[in-house]
């Protein structure tokens, strides 16, 4: 049997709506029998944060970044119509109304379907995010990991 096709997505954005689009495409691609990898860099990394508290051995700047950035997929804001937090509440309401999946559900489904999640180590350092603050079941990598996958990707997206 020939090798599976491949989809790669770079999730740079840390917005609920954009992350949702990324994970819908990832889940669709997995259903297409593609090998799917999502690379999380910059604000996209916040999608992978756990809800709990962060390690304490951080510097002042790292801590400030930690306070200012959303803790996890459910806390992300909207790229449009955020309206000081009203927007995400409304979007979650209509998601339920239309029987669509929320972002945390889409992430869980992606993991279940074997989508590979890779966190960019350079931006983890810049934002002061430690491995233990991020969800389990992910890999760490850099631009070479991304290019290695994207070079034989049939679908490569930057969101």
């Amino acid at each position: 049997m020939e090798a599976n096709k491949k989809t790669t997505i770079v999730l740079f954005s840390g917005d609920y709506d954009k992350a949702m689009a990324a994970f819908i495409i990832a889940n669709g691609a997995a259903a297409y029998d593609h090998d799917v990898t999502i690379f999380f860099t910059f604000w996209g990394l916040n999608t992978l944060r756990k809800d709990g508290s962060a390690p304490t051995n951080k510097g002042m700047l790292e801590r400030m970044f930690g306070w200012m950035m959303p803790r996890g997929a459910n806390k992300l804001g909207l790229s449009k119509m955020h309206m000081a937090g009203m927007g995400p509440k409304m979007i979650k309401h209509v998601i339920r109304k239309h029987n669509a999946l929320t972002l945390p559900q889409l992430i869980e489904l992606a993991q279940e379907q074997g989508v590979k999640l890779v966190a960019c180590t350079m931006t983890m350092d810049l934002l002061g995010l430690r491995r233990e603050e991020l969800i389990e079941d992910l890999e760490l990598g850099g631009v070479a990991t991304y290019l290695g996958e994207a070079s034989d990707g049939n679908v490569n997206l930057f969101i």
Partner: peptide, 14 residues
């Protein structure tokens, strides 16, 4: 029935 994208193809694939 009643499920939104991407669930129909995900379920079909499974």
């Amino acid at each position: 029935k009643g499920l939104a994208c991407p669930m129909p193809i995900v379920k079909a694939k499974k």
